[in-house]
Amino acid sequence: MKKETKQLICVNCPKGCRITVTMEGEKAVEVTGYSCENGKNYAMQESVCPMRILTTTVKITQSTLRVLPVMSEKEIPLHVWKQAMEEVRKITVQAPVSIGQVIKEDLCGTGVRLIASRSMKKV
């Protein structure tokens, strides 16, 4: 089968390793340029279906700020970002909130939870 190489930049950490993945059709057969296991796994995944942590905000009432920062607890497929944002936009929470608190159980069918990424007091 024809081999094809993909150049990637790892997004796991700010080091930004430049990784080369050799693809045989839909399958990654060789990965070079990574400097940790996370990087290798990232490259394997990235060449098939890019996954990202989603960070955004939801509306919050009775707090000092008007929005609460939230993030997906794990990576979700990059391509679902629009649907995920539509779901998130409908959410309003009430203060107080603690960091790590589950804001939504299943983010647009991915099975990944949306959690608060800071605590916010009630005023």
Partner: peptide
């Protein structure tokens, strides 16, 4: 910018 930010 950091290369990872160009990507993501």
């Amino acid at each position: 910018g950091l290369p990872r930010n160009i990507q993501q």
